[in-house]
């Protein structure tokens, strides 16, 4: 995400009652008149400003609190995995059967990975090429049509995609490849359309933030447009684009409703592109309505797993963009 904006230094805007004021340069060149500055505003105003600062800080902490609470509560509900199911059995078990109290999540992890990788393999190149087109090739008129279209694509709710998958893509896949039409292939097609706008919009931000000058330098050396894109623009925007793809991956792994509607929902190992499977997300929704005891614990364990995966992806993006800034 950090490719989308560049934080500016904020030192000149900070003003605390006992601080140096909005003009630190001035404050540094002259002796500080702390007490004199303080008397300019009344005591009541000072207290009010102080209180407001605390209020703002509290609001900012809500985000941190939210994340901590989400993880704490989901993990707490899932903590029964350790004594009741056994962590190893849970994470490496390949059998999922509620009737036999077997809660191995490997089929769902494999399902999520298969669905995500397939969607990325189709969606990411399409999205990056769309971003390249928007940023490098398109004239203002084509841009004015395609960019809002991509944004609109991002706004369509996932149930609608799922609905589209059920009524259009699944019958099509069934006719072309046999089977019921519900399975990884259908999920790939629908999910790849879903993640295109995410990746395309973030990649375009990354491409747009590259200074025009290096493109001009490349053209001035006689490079064609494609050479400029391939050898100058893409390497320069590399980290931003990788960020975009990782965030698109997060979207695909966490996608629930659309996947639930088209993936077939059979708790079994991936066996073929048209054989129904289940993912972490879809299995949670399916089971949650009647789950109790160990079953419920296992579902929360899967949710905790999903949370950790998405956190890891965000962390990778953070670290990448940090190394990108230094390098």
């Amino acid at each position: 995400m950090s490719a989308a904006y560049t934080p500016q230094p904020l030192t000149q805007q900070t003003l605390h009652p006992e601080d140096e004021g909005p003009f630190p340069d001035l404050a540094q060149t002259q002796p500080r008149h702390k007490t004199a500055a303080l008397t300019l505003v009344s005591r009541a105003t000072q207290i009010k400003e102080r209180g407001l600062l605390l209020l703002f800080f509290a609001c900012a902490i809500v985000a941190v609190l939210g994340v901590v609470l989400i993880f704490a509560f989901v993990a707490y509900q899932a903590s029964g995995v350790f004594p009741n199911i056994g962590f190893l059995k849970f994470i490496t078990g390949t059998k999922w059967s509620v009737a036999h109290s077997q809660f191995g999540v490997v089929p769902f992890i494999v399902g999520s990975v298969v669905v995500t990788i397939g969607a990325l393999a189709i969606g990411a190149p399409l999205a990056i090429m769309t971003a390249l087109f928007l940023s490098e090739v398109a004239g203002p008129r084509a841009r004015a049509v395609i960019r809002p279209a991509v944004e609109l694509l991002a706004g369509i709710p996932s149930v609608v995609y799922g609905f589209f998958g059920v009524t259009v893509v699944a019958p099509l896949v069934a006719r072309l490849f046999g089977g019921a039409g519900f399975g990884p292939l259908t999920a790939w097609i629908v999910l790849s359309i879903m993640i295109v706008p995410t990746i395309a919009m973030l990649s375009e931000d990354a491409l747009d933030s590259i200074p025009m000058g290096i493109r001009e330098a490349s053209f001035a050396m006689g490079a064609t447009q494609w050479q400029t894109i391939y050898k100058v623009v893409l390497p320069a925007a590399k980290i931003g684009i990788i960020d975009a793809v990782i965030l698109g991956m997060g979207r695909a792994i966490g996608e629930t409703m659309a996947v639930l509607m088209i993936v077939g929902n059979a708790p079994q190992m991936f066996a073929g592109l048209t054989k129904p499977i289940a993912t972490l997300t879809s299995q949670i929704v399916l089971g949650m309505s009647y789950a109790a005891d160990d079953f419920r614990t296992a579902l929360f364990g899967m949710a905790a797993l999903l949370f950790l995966i998405s956190m890891c992806l965000v962390l990778i993006v953070r670290l990448l963009s940090r190394t990108g800034k230094e390098g």
Partner: peptide, 28 residues
Amino acid sequence: YAKQGRIVTVIRFAADSLASVPSIVMGL
């Protein structure tokens, strides 16, 4: 208000994480 520092980094990271929490996890 905030000075760029560790607290701001933590808050930003939390906000980014919150934005990427899968909706089913949020539901649970």
